[in-house]
Amino acid sequence: MSRYLLDKFLYTVDRDPALVERYREDPAGTVAAWEAEYAPRLLNCVTHEATTWLAFDDTERAALAAHDYPRLFELGAHPFLTLTLFIAMFERDHAEPLGFQREYAERLAHMTLPYPDIST
């Protein structure tokens, strides 16, 4: 299990407009391509200084591939990263201001304190 890699996915996709659109349109394909191409990148180093050991487990890969943000919350992905990226992808589909944000809260309504650990 790698909360860190979940967060790295959310972080690197959120900051790249092309990746945001690609993940919205083709979640499973984007997750697979990202895990092969982006997951090993050490962000402040040249490409060949890649990290060799990072991988999602099946649960994490499935949650990302299904856009299942309640599951990402349960897995301890950083809630700010998840929220920001999913707003970028889906706020546009809601006519009401904050409509997506409120639906998001509703879909997490089963979560009670203490919330899942987000430490990495």
């Binding site: 919350f73 950083h78 809630p79 700010f80 990263l81 998840t82 929220l83 904050l98 944000q101 409120r102 998001y104 809260a105 509703e106 997490l108 309504a109 089963h110 979560m111 919330y115």
Partner: peptide
């Protein structure tokens, strides 16, 4: 609260 059930109340 950000990204949790109590957000945007």
């Amino acid at each position: 609260e950000l990204g949790g059930p109590r957000q945007f109340g």
